[in-house]
Every structure is written in structure tokens, then in C-alpha cells.
């Protein structure tokens, strides 16, 4: 880890919890929604529009007293493929988790086909990731293949 980013993680410092870094700034709140953080009862700090060489503008989310799992982290992969997730214990980075797009994603994105059953009945969506770059997601219901530009969140 670079010196600079280590400093950044400590402001404001959290004793125990999770720091999600390198989120494209504009999807930061969506990431919070996917991880159900708004319902979460602990201290959360969010920073937006921070300078980032790779992303232009990035967001950071720091969640106290919650440790995200690999499965949870993977849920944000479609939005923030370059995000890094640090698990903090006693002010130290104990673990770094990289997001990895899973082979299947459930109930995170919508199907772009208006005639798909998932857009007409209360059904959880399910997609198979055919390709990570460029992104291709197959609706397991109607079999439509979506690209990155077709994707909207539930």
C-alpha cells in the first residue's frame, strides 16, 4: 500500500470495521444501497469526489463494526470493479479483499427486456456472467444478453 492512501484510511479513523475504497464517485450511494448500509445502525462515513488517478473521482465508505465478507464484496463488483476493501481491526488493516465479479449475480441488476417475466412479476432476477471484460450478462430467465450500457440496478 502507498503511504498516502494509508494516511487517508485513518481519517476519520475507525477502530473496527470496513473501508471500501476506489469506488467510482457517482455510484458510491448505490454501493451503500446494495450493501444495505443505510439500514445499518453504526457510524458510517462517506467521502465523495476525491481525486483519483485511476477513476477521476472516487468515493470512500467507512463502516464501523461491520466486516464485509467476500460474497458481500462481490455484489458491488458490477458497479465498482476496481474497489478495494480493507477490513480494519484495532486501527490496523487486517485483511484486503479484492472485488471479483461472481459467475452469477442475484437480484442486483434489472433485465433490459420489458417483456421479461422478471419485469412483470415479483421475481428475483438472476444473471450469468458470460464475460467480465467486456461485460456480458445473460438473463437466466429470458436469455437476453446485456452489455454494460444496458445495465440498471434494481
Amino acid at each position: 500500500m502507498k503511504q498516502g492512501s494509508k494516511k487517508e484510511l485513518k481519517v476519520p479513523a475507525i477502530k473496527d470495521g470496513t473501508v471500501i475504497d476506489h469506488i467510482p464517485s457517482r455510484v458510491t450511494f448505490k454501493v451503500m444501497r446494495i450493501l444495505d448500509l443505510r439500514e445499518f445502525n453504526q457510524a458510517i462515513s462517506v467521502a465523495l469526489n476525491l481525486k483519483s488517478k485511476a477513476l477521476g473521482k472516487k468515493g470512500i465508505i467507512k463502516v464501523g463494526n461491520r466486516f464485509l465478507t467476500q460474497d458481500e464484496v462481490n455484489k458491488i463488483a458490477i458497479l465498482a470493479p476496481k474497489a478495494t476493501v480493507n477490513i480494519i481491526k484495532d486501527y490496523e488493516v487486517k485483511e484486503k479483499i479484492n472485488v471479483d465479479l461472481p459467475d452469477e449475480i442475484h437480484n442486483i441488476i434489472k433485465c433490459s427486456n420489458p417483456k421479461c417475466i422478471t419485469n412483470n412479476e415479483k421475481v428475483k432476477t438472476s444473471f450469468s456472467i458470460l464475460s467480465k471484460t467486456p461485460l456480458q450478462a445473460l438473463c437466466n430467465h429470458c436469455e437476453r444478453v446485456m452489455e454494460a450500457k444496458d445495465i440498471t440496478l434494481i
Binding site: 417475466i117 412483470n120 412479476e121 421475481v123 430467465h141 429470458c142 436469455e143 437476453r144
Partner: peptide, 27 residues
């Protein structure tokens, strides 16, 4: 069924076999 993917949903719901006789423009 007129909606695409309806057969897959029916198969998820049913414990007996489902045969798709056409789901919209899909299969």
C-alpha cells in the same frame, strides 16, 4: 406464456417437470 422467461420461473416454482410450449419470443 406471452412473457419471456416465464417457463424458467414456472420450473423454479414447480416440483413436477415443466415443459415450455413457448415463452414469448424466447424459446
Amino acid at each position: 406464456h406471452p412473457l419471456e422467461g416465464a417457463a424458467r420461473l414456472a420450473a423454479d416454482a414447480a416440483t413436477i417437470p415443466v415443459i415450455n410450449a413457448g415463452d414469448g419470443a424466447n424459446q
